[in-house]
Write a protein that binds this DNA or RNA. Sequence first.
DNA 1: AACTGGACCAACCGCGACACT
DNA 2: AAGTGTCGCGGTTGGTCCAGT
Length: 223
Amino acid sequence: MGRHGRNKQDRNQGAWSKQEDQKLTDYIRKHGEGCWRSLPQAAGLLRCGKSCRLRWINYLRPDLKRGNFAEDEEDLIIKLHALLGNRWSLIAGRLPGRTDNEVKNYWNSHLRRKLIKMGIDPNNHRLRQNLLRPHNAQNPASASSSSGLKTQAIQQPTKSHVDKEQVSDAVSCLEDDPCALPDLNLDLTVSFHSPSTPDVEGNPKDSRPQLDTAPSPTLLLFQ
DNA sequence: AACTGGACCAACCGCGACACT
DNA sequence: AAGTGTCGCGGTTGGTCCAGT
């Protein structure tokens, strides 16, 4: 199992008990987050640090919102996903009180299906051509009108080709616009670096393998 | 009432990147 | 510069719940 291998004999696994939650919460309240490696022993937990971190971030953190996603949150996730791809932590970062895991699960269980139902490919947020009726095939932007949603064409970024500065700037534009929510009449036009442009932050996550083959397709977003 | 399949969600796993030595 | 430890992220899995039959 490699570096993260666990010894199942002396490690709890599976669902967390209330006592474990309490121990973890108490410890973090006292000592703060961080040092996940040594936390379990210090807190008296038979878990690996990774598991503790996950439990805290996804479930125990006091600022978590929990509960159903609001419609504007849904819309924002869809837009951000179109912008960022499966970069759940970045998307969750724009949704106060939501975790990447929560957003990811919600996407996979609700939003993906929703888009598919609407005839939109959830991977690239484009209308699936085979679902277009002949009369609107030339004007894809009108194809989703049956859902009551309008579509908007923007430049589709390639996955992993969005550095945090750009994301921040782009999304900040959304937030700066007082009209952006709840109507979410958002203009997500973003400029992207050319491949030769160095990353502003040198952020490692942004140097992941890139899907540069996408020829800046038209992207469909809801309004 | 019992069974079944799908949906949902918490948790786990593997990998990549950074920090430190 | 190379090796090692730690952390964070995204993908996947498995258990539970619930609606439909």
